[in-house]
């Protein structure tokens, strides 16, 4: 009897020990430390430049996981890779631009310059120019990043493999994107970047086009003139700025510009509302072309509140 009593006690203790052991190995709740360097963002979006259905690089937002600039930039670059590990983040209607075997070896951030070392960056079946443009525009969308340096297996990328085009070792948005050349004279050649609107599946997005044209006007007036031409150079790109809209005058103050339009900036004269697509098209175009940080809109000298 004593033996049976001891056995019962031993088995109870053993059962208790096993239960405690199981709870220790498989806890009911995981605790995340939100103060680590690679802390996780919840529902944070970031800009990336992907190809749309017309093979135009387009400004798109994707959900991102990381906050720190090195991890975030890696995440964005990985998202540019065709069938890469973040393919599920890519919105429908868009696709990656870097070859599927692209490897990101290292990322180094120095003030406003980001240096990225790749392997297998180019594939002769793909558009090398669009690859470089998407890398530059995506990385310079990061806060405080203005310059990009691309190396391939630790060697500076100074020439594109197919076209033999020379590259500066430090790249900025001055490189241009979706470039179009409409020059018939060598006089008054200018370049501006215009943000048009594209539509896919009833959703709107922005498509930047760097245009080289002949014009004796200043860049801000060229931008407004281009956007008042209702259609972009191809019929899939749209500008919502009324063709009658006129820029009365503008003022530059440090890194801010004040744009004063007439009533035709309004979508509807009775409600005095300006379409979001109009404001963003102008704002993005001016910021990219002129390296301006803030754009303020006025109609007949009265500021539009956004």
């Amino acid at each position: 009897m004593i033996k049976r009593f001891s056995l019962k006690r031993v088995s109870k203790v053993l059962l208790l020990f096993i239960t405690v052991l199981l709870l220790y190995v498989f806890p009911a709740k995981k605790v995340y430390n939100l103060n680590t360097k690679e802390s996780i963002s919840i529902n944070k979006y970031h800009t990336i430049y992907l190809l749309d259905k017309n093979n135009m690089l387009s400004k798109v937002k994707i959900i991102v996981t990381y906050n720190s600039i090195d991890k975030l930039s890696e995440e964005l670059l990985e998202s540019l890779i065709i069938n890469g590990k973040y393919t599920d983040k890519i919105p429908s209607g868009f696709k990656g631009v870097l070859p599927k075997n692209t490897k990101i070896n290292s990322i180094n951030v120095k003030y406003d310059l980001i240096e990225v070392d790749f392997s297998n960056l180019f594939d002769e079946r793909l558009d090398e120019e669009k690859e470089v443009e998407s890398i530059i525009y995506t990385l310079t969308s990061l806060n405080k990043i203005n310059k990009v340096k691309i190396t391939i297996d630790s060697k500076d990328l100074l020439t594109l493999p197919k076209s033999q085009k020379k590259l500066d070792s430090i790249l900025t948005r001055k490189y241009g994107i979706n470039k179009e050349y409409d020059i018939d004279s060598i006089k008054n050649i200018q370049n501006v970047t215009i943000y048009y609107v594209g539509i896919y599946d009833n959703k709107k997005y922005y498509v930047p086009v760097t245009k080289y044209i002949n014009s004796d006007k200043d860049k801000i007036n060229i931008i407004v003139e281009e956007l008042t031409s209702r259609m972009g150079y191809n019929t899939d790109l749209i500008s919502y700025l009324n063709s009658n809209a006129r820029l009365i005058d503008y003022k530059l103050e440090d890194d801010k510009v004040f744009l004063n339009f007439d009533n035709y900036l309004f979508d509807n004269q009775s409600t005095s509302k300006v379409l979001e697509e109009v404001l963003y098209s102008i704002e993005y175009s001016v910021k990219d072309t002129l390296d301006i940080k803030n754009v303020v809109f006025l109609v007949n000298n009265k500021e539009i509140k956004r």
Partner: peptide, 17 residues
């Protein structure tokens, strides 16, 4: 022509604005 030459040179980044 000169315009065509300028376009090619801009594309190749041999000259810049």
């Amino acid at each position: 022509g000169r315009s065509a030459a300028v376009i090619e040179l801009l594309k190749l980044n041999e000259i810049s604005l």
